[in-house]
C-alpha cells in the first residue's frame, strides 16, 4: 500500500486524462457502429449492399460485435502501455 502515497497527484492526473480520452474515443465508436449504423443511421447505409441485404443489417447482426472485440483488445493493449509510460503499472 506504501507505493500509493509515493505517486504524485499531478502525474496521475495526466494518466487519468489520457485514460478518459481513449475511453471517450472508444465510446464514440462503440455507439456509432451499434446504435448508429445498426439502428438510427441504417436508412443512410441502405444503398450499400451486403450479402442479400444492406450494411446496416450487417452491423446490427454481426459487424458491431466484431468491432466491440477489437475495441476491448485495443483498449487493453493501449492502457497497459500507458500504465508503464506513467509508471503506474503493477510490478
Amino acid at each position: 500500500m506504501a507505493d500509493r502515497k509515493t505517486q504524485t497527484g499531478k502525474d496521475n492526473g495526466a494518466y487519468w486524462a489520457a485514460n478518459i480520452r481513449i475511453i471517450m474515443i472508444s465510446m464514440v465508436i462503440w455507439a456509432l457502429v451499434s446504435l448508429g449504423f445498426g439502428i438510427v443511421l441504417r436508412p443512410l447505409l441502405s444503398g450499400i449492399p451486403v450479402g442479400g441485404t444492406d450494411l446496416g443489417f450487417w452491423f446490427a447482426q454481426q459487424g458491431s460485435i466484431i468491432v466491440f472485440m477489437i475495441l476491448i483488445f485495443y483498449y487493453a493493449w493501449y492502457m497497459n502501455k500507458l500504465d508503464r509510460q506513467y509508471g503506474v503499472d503493477e510490478e
Partner: peptide, 8 residues
C-alpha cells in the same frame, strides 16, 4: 484516486 491507478 487509488482505484484509478493499477499500481498496488
Amino acid at each position: 484516486d487509488s482505484v484509478r491507478i493499477p499500481r498496488g
